[in-house]
Design a binder for these strands. Sequence first.
DNA 1: CGGAATTTTGAGCGGAGTCAAACCCCGTGG
DNA 2: CCACGGGGTTTGACTCCGCTCAAAATTCCG
Lengths: 242, 242
Amino acid sequence: MNGSDIHSLLRKLDAERRFTRDEMAALLELPIQIATLQPGDHIVREGDRPTKSCLIIEGLVCASKTTARGSRQIASLYVPGDIPDLQSLHLEVMDISFEAISPAKIGFISHSALRRICDSFPRLASALWRTTLVDAAIYRDWVTNVGQRDSDSRLAHLFCELTMRLDAVGLVQEDGYDLPLTQTDLADALGISVVHVNRTLQRLRRLGLISFKNKRLTVLDWPQLAEMGDFEPSYLHLSERV
Amino acid sequence: MNGSDIHSLLRKLDAERRFTRDEMAALLELPIQIATLQPGDHIVREGDRPTKSCLIIEGLVCASKTTARGSRQIASLYVPGDIPDLQSLHLEVMDISFEAISPAKIGFISHSALRRICDSFPRLASALWRTTLVDAAIYRDWVTNVGQRDSDSRLAHLFCELTMRLDAVGLVQEDGYDLPLTQTDLADALGISVVHVNRTLQRLRRLGLISFKNKRLTVLDWPQLAEMGDFEPSYLHLSERV
DNA sequence: CGGAATTTTGAGCGGAGTCAAACCCCGTGG
DNA sequence: CCACGGGGTTTGACTCCGCTCAAAATTCCG
């Protein structure tokens, strides 16, 4: 694994604790197998028994479930630096699918290699465990978002979350950032219909909170957007070190 | 920690891997501090920085979040044998509250003791990590439940989940089981109003799928209930050993 | 027995869904 | 270079699930 691919992962894992030289070396020596994906390509599907996990290097990935009626719910989105399916390290069969939302570049790391560094370096194991706990905190937050808020608030909340997470890995510029989500994707993430996503977007635009055009989002009024989305970012556990 | 308190925890952790004598001993020697709770009592609140986690010995506990508008979303329910707030072992500040739904008996275990056994026994660490991943799978499932299903299906799904989880720890009898949830609790778990929970319950009763009276639930027609709830239990990761 | 919590019922409203069509953008190929 | 096609976005009209606001009925419990 080369330094640039792993850069955002390191940033994330290392945020809390400072790793030793050996720990760093072990991470950098992880064998990693790069793949590129197109939108809709699956990384793993419900029912699979994967033998590797993947690190997102570029692009957006989602965790999705399909109901009997055929509708899709996106349970979470993953950004570069995330390891979305680390759970498969300890849970044999997948209960959810992971698929690329945008063109993506990912790196597969075998479970055996991950187990090896977890056994040798308990602090790395803890750091990886921690990332899965942050993922869980995000799922919980999504339950609240989908369960309690009206559509305006829901969409605002999601935009706030993505802005903070992408900002944390340096992917937000002054004038906005690329957010390669279709309105259908948003609908599946928010549990509302596409038609309603469209109308909700128009409302947020009319209020001057955001602009969202050509898959590029600009937050025009962060305080208002956070207010509307009832956004309280502690669940992202981004900088507990202070 | 005595054998009976820890019984259901052991069952859960040990389901996958068979522990060694030393590992067992380490678990049984964990210092544990018993507490009893009344409905509504908080174990920890959003913003807290706990120094211990808790094992549920008896009763029901929920993870809940309160929105700015004051509404409460329950993100998950926990049954005896669960360690709901194990996340605090690695995430310093709580992003969610845990509170007793029914009278409950819980056992606190200090983080330092947990860290000690995780460092000494990597397989115990993995087993604990695994339980947090199952919790995460349940959160994800709840996102889907709240996001995609209508109220009948949602309630049916929740009843199916609770039936399986309680059955897994031996708390389901032939003629039903105690499920100490008020309709308000159900409303907060499902993201629908109390009034609507009431009407939904009546519909499920009228269809002969369940009876629910005096906080006791009987599943009268499991196949139909599972069908209506679009229930596919793999996400509970209950018996992967087979 | 009395008060509080919980469950149930009724009436009316509105947010969000569905269905359908139009529009737009963009890449492809004739 | 333009016609074609397909995915994505937008609009309109109508419907309905689930919400709110009350109030009544019932159960729980000290």
